[in-house]
Design a binder for these strands. Structure first.
Lengths: 131, 131
DNA sequence: CCGCATCCTATGAGATACTG
DNA sequence: CAGTATCTCATAGGATGCGG
């Protein structure tokens, strides 16, 4: 079941189906579109961080959302979680190779966004002024 | 107010602040991460379509979400809306130049997603099997 | 044909309090 | 320190019915 999309498209040689909720593009969009994911990856891009270091470096994030997002990222293989059985406990989060390659994707989006933000904001202002 | 981010970063020469909700990257992520936006842009990439043509070509979309998404895209200057004062009414939607350039961004995401989906799904399966 | 208005529900996400 | 658990509220999104 987990592999249904993969089976469909890669093994059975069908074309990717963007309308499928398991479509890779949708999978990635849903992940990076998350409110906090990009911020967390941004912080980890400079190196390993502990839980509370991350919490402090991402302004406004709650413990719940940090935990939740980190779990999802670990599940996707984008970060690794290393636990030290010390007192007090210590947990480190590091980007994997996969996670590091994701930085470039976000950069591409940022480049497009920054070159076009002026047009978009102007279009929005023009649209809104009609009402 | 609408231009606050733009003023801050481009006119006042400050660096982009990804933590600001008006940050261009966040603006674009929020737009393309929308459940339907990518699908609609995908359909329009092959040419102009009418409202009900779009509705039929995007399986599962409701009238509400189609209207809502199209409005947002028009507001952002990504599509243009042309109304024909006929009976029955006819409304056509077409990608703007800006909208067409967005296709390439989505393609970049798709490329990354498709090259890495296998690893991600395997990581997820491995993670889930632990519990 | 192309919507808008309304109601309803599920999920997302913040605040708060508690534990190994 | 690094979480979990629960409560609550806001929003997104689906279903349905009406209107120009």
């Amino acid at each position: 079941m987990l592999y249904s999309y993969y089976l469909e498209t890669y093994i059975m040689k069908k074309i990717p189906n963007i309308y499928n909720a398991n479509c890779p593009t949708r999978l990635i969009l849903d992940r990076i579109a998350d409110k906090w994911t990009v911020l967390i990856i941004g912080q980890l891009s400079s190196g390993t961080l502990r839980f509370n270091e991350l919490k402090r470096s991402v302004p406004g994030i709650t413990q719940k959302m940090l935990t939740q997002t980190l779990k999802g990222l670990e599940r996707d293989g984008i970060i690794v979680r290393k636990i030290y059985a010390t007192v007090p406990p210590k947990v480190e989060y590091t980007l994997t190779k996969l996670g590091k390659s994701l930085i470039r994707v976000v950069e591409a989006i940022r480049t497009w966004a920054e070159t076009n933000v002026k047009d978009i904001l102007q279009s929005q202002a023009k649209y809104d002024s009609k009402f």
